[in-house]
């Protein structure tokens, strides 16, 4: 159930892995008033998946992943505002653009380790935030960028007021991202990322091009983050400064940890629980909300490193042990 990949792990789908998709579809029919929130959750799950790839599998600790999410979001916004409001082209360009930014920055920063790397990731997203803030001609600065109406997808499906199209649009791309990440996790490439995370000295000694592999994983992850950002822009038809900076990176990291790191579905559970709770609690008691999240984070780190899914796994193991 941990989906840690490797050479003995069985890559076939378990029945329970279809559950998230069933729930997502169920939600579409049963809770139509939640669809805008649902779309947001779906994009954040894509974003969390991309983060899981670098943090959970490759072991690159980053505080700056919002740089790529934001890059995708702004590219999509600028493209829609200036060039064309065709959604799929915009999505493709944003994904590639964020991936390129990931490649460029990854090549540069992944030579370092530890505090320097942490700092560099933070500096990059701060730099992007400052850039978006100051380049008002392109980004609208603090006001953000909006006022564009995205065309129907493939000329067929109009983005409706209730967010039905948007929800399915996000769901399709989440499905694709999930499929990609899952394949990668179970592949030799994924196994080698785990190897690098566990012991990079040894990976170097068996002749693995460690640096190149980190750069590639970082680039793929950045592209996925960009895809998520672009989806957010297109479905909300707006992009503002909140898509960049340390706060979003930190929050995303919190969601991922909450769900469980390095196990694929932690990236599903974390954002879902976090954002639902936030929607419910944060409006009424913002202070308590932040306090609670901080508290949970501290407790998770101190006591339950595996997050929610880790607890579930431990519970199942215990139950099995008891019934055996």
């Amino acid at each position: 159930m941990t989906h840690s990949g490797g050479y003995v792990a069985d890559p076939r789908f378990r029945a329970i892995e279809w559950l998230p998709w069933l729930l997502a579809l169920l939600c579409f029919f049963v809770a139509p008033s939640y669809l805008p929130l649902g779309s947001y959750v779906l994009t954040m799950i894509i974003f969390a998946l991309s983060l899981d790839l670098v943090v959970g599998y490759a072991g690159i600790i980053t505080l700056g992943h919002s740089a790529y999410f934001g890059a995708g979001a702004y590219i999509a916004g600028i493209f829609a505002a200036r060039v064309s409001t065709e959604p799929l082209t915009g999505l493709a360009i944003s994904t590639v653009g964020a991936g390129l930014l990931g490649l460029l920055t990854g090549v540069v920063i992944l030579r370092t380790r530890g505090l320097a790397l942490l700092m560099l990731t933070l500096a990059i997203t701060s730099l992007c935030l400052e850039f978006a803030n100051k380049a008002t001609g392109w980004t609208g600065g603090a006001d953000g960028l909006g006022g564009f109406a995205i065309q129907p997808i493939l000329g067929l499906f109009k983005f409706d007021l209730f967010g039905k199209t948007a929800y399915l649009y996000c769901l399709v791309f989440l499905f694709a991202s999930w499929w990609l990440v899952r394949r990668m996790v179970y592949s030799p490439f994924g196994a080698s990322l785990t190897g690098i995370r566990e012991n990079d000295v040894r990976m170097n000694a068996v002749g693995a091009p460690v640096y190149m592999r980190l750069v590639v994983s970082y680039t793929i992850s950045a592209a996925l983050a960009g895809l998520a950002g672009a989806l957010l822009t297109q479905t909300t038809q707006y992009v503002g400064l909140k898509v960049l900076g340390f706060e979003l990176s930190g929050e995303l990291l919190v969601m991922l940890i909450l769900g469980g790191i390095g196990r694929i579905y932690g990236a599903f559970v974390g954002p879902l629980v976090y954002l639902l709770a936030q929607d419910y609690l944060a409006k009424q008691f913002p202070e308590y909300w932040y306090f609670g999240i901080g508290m949970i984070l501290v407790l998770v780190v101190m006591f339950v490193r595996g997050g929610i899914l880790g607890i579930v796994d431990a519970g199942i193991a215990k139950w099995r042990g008891a019934s055996a």
Partner: peptide, 14 residues
């Protein structure tokens, strides 16, 4: 690594 398959991303390691 020696066999040069460690870059493969789609076929399962298994």
């Amino acid at each position: 690594e020696r066999e040069g398959v460690a870059w493969r991303m789609f076929r399962a390691a298994n």
